[in-house]
Simulated assay, not measured.
Amino acid sequence: MKHFSATDATPRALNFAMPPEWDPHAATWMSWPADDELWFGHLGAVRAEFAELVRTIARFEPVQLLVRDAESRQDAGERLAGADVTFHDVPLNDVWIRDNGPLFVTRESGEISFVNWRFNAWGGKFDYAEDDRVPEAVARILGAAHWDVPVVLEGGALELGGAGVALTTRSCLLTDTRNLGLDAGKYADWLREYLGVTKLLWLGAGLENDHTDGHIDTITRFSDERTIVTSVEADRADPNHAVMSANLEALREMTGADGQPFRIVELPLPAGYLEGAEGRLPPTYANFYIGNGFVVVPQYGDANDARALEILTPLFPGREVIGLSSRAIIEGGGSFHCVTQQQPVGAVWTGQA
């Protein structure tokens, strides 16, 4: 297995780039929840929702599930019996594999590899030593050559739209607890060389009380190369209203790789105010996950649940749009996109140019 560094030939130099989420998957990677303290005493309810999510994804594509100890393996095994799930014993701190896992890249020859970015738990907010090692565990499991780079980047901070276009937020990437000294231009350089992003579009900020400092995947997503779904808040008294409105106006001025404007679809935030152990929670319907023939959308027992499904369903022709409960999972601060990481279809690259 080869490890490449930032001084070696970059993925871009070898014609690798990160594909959009809707490209075919070989598998979905996930990590099983295990720490009751991190879930504020709600681990049982979280695991029940997690099991439903894993089972749903496994109806469409294989799930590669990381489990941190014997108790986790036994619990997951019992809840997921008969599902298309492969278990891997890997030390873990938490479940947010979108952020701490590998970001896969592909090239036209049909090979896949990945980039191992640094993970520091959203600026050192939680323990993260084990989670920062997850990409190396995946590399051992797959036998994959890959790149190790000295830049902190979470997968949830970047939304790929195809054709080299990506979205992100200033409030997340430009915080000094990620990469002190990296400005927007330097980020663009790293993302171009290591993920093939040739046009990086910046929004201002994310949801109130989002411990990720405003990940893009909780507010604004691509459904195809030309269509962007973005969260809106109708209540002018809600702190999210001004931020989401500013993002909406910015998106209306943006263009794709071809210089043409995007189609912008407004997606309401949940109408209810959800309170967790540490204050307001950041529930959102934009944290959906796109897989082979399906899209799973978080639901919260909220008045806007059905409306969100109505808006999203026609945006994914040929895919079954499925609403699943995330009322317990959101207690941890994220939802379905945050706990999944797609592996594209392709032969695992072993390091040959």
Rank of each mutant, 00 (worst) to 15 (best):
V105I: 10
T220N: 07
V243Q: 06
N287F: 05
P62C: 01
F288R: 01
G101T: 14
R252W: 04
D213F: 06
G185Q: 13
D217T: 07
A166E: 11
V348D: 04
R236E: 15
L201R: 01
S72C: 09
R59Q: 15
I264A: 10
R107V: 03
A17G: 10
D35H: 07
N209F: 13
M1C: 14
V229Q: 09
G204L: 04
L267S: 10
F262L: 12
R12A: 10
H241L: 05
D35N: 13
L167F: 01
N287V: 03
Q342W: 00
P19N: 04
P20T: 06
E136H: 08
D36E: 02
T175N: 12
R133L: 15
A257K: 10
H337Q: 05
Y273H: 13
N240Q: 11
A205T: 08
F87D: 14
A163Q: 12
N240P: 15
I97V: 15
V265F: 01
F288I: 00
P314C: 00
S171F: 02
N179P: 04
P102C: 00
L324D: 05
P150C: 03
E275F: 04
R98Y: 14
L173K: 10
L201A: 01
L281F: 12
A237T: 09
G123W: 05
P268W: 14
E320K: 13
